[in-house]
Amino acid sequence: MQIKVQVYAILRQYIPGASRGPLVMDVPEGTTVGQLIEQLPIPPELARVVFVNGIRQESDWVLQEGDEVGIFPPIAGGEGPGSWAI
């Protein structure tokens, strides 16, 4: 199935041409977000926030034909516990 993938910020330095528009990729049915990231020439630990059709999803999310995927490095992001709440 075909999906469209956009990577942003520093991830673009790993994929030539990534700033010109989305990459169209052929992936097997049932591919998850995590498996997609493994196929891309980017350091997986830098794929911090992933949107599928504008909704943030985790790595076990199963992709569908025609999905639009946006992958962001830590633009903000860490995985800490948060120290603010009382």
Partner: peptide
């Protein structure tokens, strides 16, 4: 931060 960026939890 937590709602979009994944900072300070999600």
């Amino acid at each position: 931060a937590p709602e979009i960026l994944g900072v300070g939890g999600k």
